[in-house]
């Protein structure tokens, strides 16, 4: 049973990682704390739910649409909310995105009501792969594989493309990047959009096993902040490793110490790591 619990933790960790990758882009690279990150995830879930309920489109198939929609939401957020407070103190941007999070959450409640919504009968729903004594849920496996693939794609984009390198350069020194001819305004918009696309994709991967309500994503949002801090700000591979770590610690902690403590253990781990290594486990 313990092995089964660890497998479940790894699967959950991959999903956490993808949610955190989006956050690490804006927080670590742009140095902007997007408090509305969880609500981006929420709207991604509603997008996947809407496509499923209206067009019977399986979330796995509608993933690109969910990602694209939240990419647009991210770009829109940058131009309408973030850009206007970019030169102000960090606290101003934080409060602006906090306000946005309230708007997005309440808007979701107004449109979709507070009622839970379930995406059922998906391609991988309630199916398992049996390996010896272990069961692997296919919906979790699909989410994990999708999450890993997308994280690697983001990593490749950041490291190998001209735009990705420009994002890195902007994160290192905005003024110098501007002197080198980089349109930092455009880069910020793309980064915010990319962050949105990540959570939009994560949302599509998660809806087969996550009931949706306006409060669904609050904990995911908190865990994403922990993962980004543990993984090192702006470190995409760090977010991946930290996501896995959090998933496994949550599962094992819950198994050994009681499930009511499983999140407390994560936050305890976070506090200890921050005291010993403030840059995060994988930060530089």
């Amino acid at each position: 049973m313990l092995s089964q619990v660890i497998i479940n933790g790894i699967m959950t960790g991959f999903v956490y990682a993808l949610v955190a990758v989006g956050l690490t882009l804006t927080w670590g690279v742009m140095d902007i704390i997007n408090f509305a990150h969880g609500e981006f995830l929420l709207w991604g879930m509603y997008a996947a739910f809407g496509l499923w309920s209206l067009f019977s489109l399986d979330p796995i198939l509608s993933l690109p649409v969910s990602a694209a929609l939240i990419f647009i939401l991210g770009v829109f957020t940058y131009f309408v909310v973030v850009k206007r407070v970019l030169k102000a103190s960090g606290l101003t941007a934080l409060l602006a995105t906090f306000g946005l999070s309230m708007v997005l959450k309440n808007l979701a409640q107004m449109i979709f009501t507070a009622n839970y919504k379930n995406v059922t009968n998906t391609i991988f729903a309630s199916k398992t792969i049996k390996l010896g004594n272990f069961f692997i849920r296919q919906d979790y496996l699909a989410a994990a594989v999708g999450s890993l693939t997308l994280t690697l794609l983001v990593l490749t984009f950041i490291n190998k493309t001209k735009t990705g390198v420009a994002i890195k350069a902007t994160s290192m020194n905005r003024s110098t990047a501007q002197l080198m001819g980089i349109n930092t305004d455009r880069i910020f918009a793309i980064t915010f959009g990319l962050s949105g696309a990540c959570v939009g994709a994560a949302a599509a991967l998660m809806v087969p096993f996550t009931p949706i309500t306006p409060g669904s994503c609050t904990l995911y949002s908190v865990l994403a902040f922990v993962i980004v801090a543990l993984g090192g700000f702006g470190n995409i591979t760090g977010a991946l490793y930290a996501g896995l770590l959090v998933g496994v610690v949550e599962a094992m902690g819950g198994y050994f110490l009681g499930t009511s403590f499983k999140y407390a253990i994560i936050f305890l781990m976070y506090l200890i790591v921050m005291q010993i290594r403030p840059k995060g486990l994988f930060g530089w």
Binding site: N8, L223, E250, K262
Partner: peptide
């Protein structure tokens, strides 16, 4: 007797304890 937090993101660990 398995307690879980109101904000759980998945119930697999809790279900595993019940199944066990």
């Amino acid at each position: 007797q398995v307690a879980y937090e109101p904000t759980i993101t998945a119930a697999d660990t809790e279900a595993a304890q019940i199944i066990n």
